[in-house]
């Protein structure tokens, strides 16, 4: 009983392992500041919880953390630690420009029915390999669904003038395009964030926007927004603060042996008072 409860909690925390289930726990990051001068430090919390920015569930391992500096190079985090309710790390901004902090993952998972019970593979934090897949997933299982999952969790911090050098696209899945003003956002002003899927405009994708501080409100207060045909998402920020913006797109472009693909994006943005 204990084990299955744990598995359930972790499984739902990492939707990448449960592609077909509802994403009960949201992965999120919380940067201490996003608009700084060169040489300053930021500290970032990384966790998953039912509601973004609430530290009441689980810290996300930082194995997949990739910090891209303004010049496009990768810089390591400092003081990285996996915590019970949140993981965290520090970063000094030694270059002028925008840094991208990403915890991304690509995996392939399978679900099927065996003896009337639902089965899933791979277990938590286990990466797909063709050998393990062939061994663990029965090829002719009942209700077999094989899904490729591409998940992105990103935030952005800028020292000095914002730049686009760290925002290069991978061309795979749902991504934020470089022309987006990630650290130039102000309450009461409209910003246009650009999204692409496989490098092409992500048209008509529905995003969910959640402001920080939901613990002190009666409702989470999410707002649903949709990209236009050019993949542009127009947001007029109601108040200053941190925001959690997320979306997931399901299609049948999964890489073999997957057929389906679930491509998700979650970005954390800081909006300043004008």
């Amino acid at each position: 009983m204990k084990i299955s409860l744990k598995a359930c909690a972790f499984g739902s925390a990492f939707a990448l392992l449960l592609p077909l289930a509802a994403q009960a726990h949201k992965p999120w990051m919380e940067p201490s500041k996003t608009v700084l001068s060169v040489g300053q430090w930021v500290t970032v919390d990384v966790a998953a919880a039912t509601v973004p920015f609430i530290k009441d569930h689980v810290g996300i391992p930082l194995d997949n953390l990739v910090i891209t500096a303004p010049d496009g190079s990768t810089v390591p985090p400092e003081n990285a630690a996996k915590g019970k309710l949140r993981s965290s790390f520090d970063l000094q901004l030694n270059q002028a420009g925008t840094y991208r902090i990403a915890n991304n993952n690509t995996n392939i998972s399978a679900s099927w029915t065996e003896d009337g019970k639902p089965k899933r593979w791979p277990p938590r934090f286990v990466q797909y390999t063709p050998e393990a897949f062939a061994k663990e997933v029965p090829a002719k299982a009942k209700d077999l669904k094989v899904t490729q999952v591409i998940s992105r969790l990103e935030t952005y911090v800028t020292a000095g003038k914002p730049s686009e050098g760290a925002l290069k696209l991978s061309g795979k899945g749902l991504e934020l395009a470089p022309a987006s003003p990630v650290n130039d956002l102000y309450a009461g002003e409209e910003a246009t964030l650009l999204f692409v899927i496989d490098g092409k405009p992500a048209a008509d994708v529905e995003f969910e926007l959640i402001a920080d501080g939901s613990r002190y409100r009666d409702a989470i207060g999410e707002t649903m927004l949709k990209t236009d045909k050019n993949g542009a998402l127009k947001i007029t920020w109601p108040t200053a603060g941190l925001y959690y913006l997320s979306a997931a797109v399901t299609d049948d472009k999964g890489e073999k042996p997957a057929k389906q693909r679930r491509s998700s994006y979650a970005g954390i943005f800081e909006v300043l008072a004008p």
Partner: peptide, 28 residues
Amino acid sequence: APAAGAPAQQAGGEGGTKWLPDLRQWWR
């Protein structure tokens, strides 16, 4: 003194530019 666009802190100091972004309209 460190700049908006130059590496900060020599000698372990935090650098006086640390609070320049708090002049947030000017900074923007």
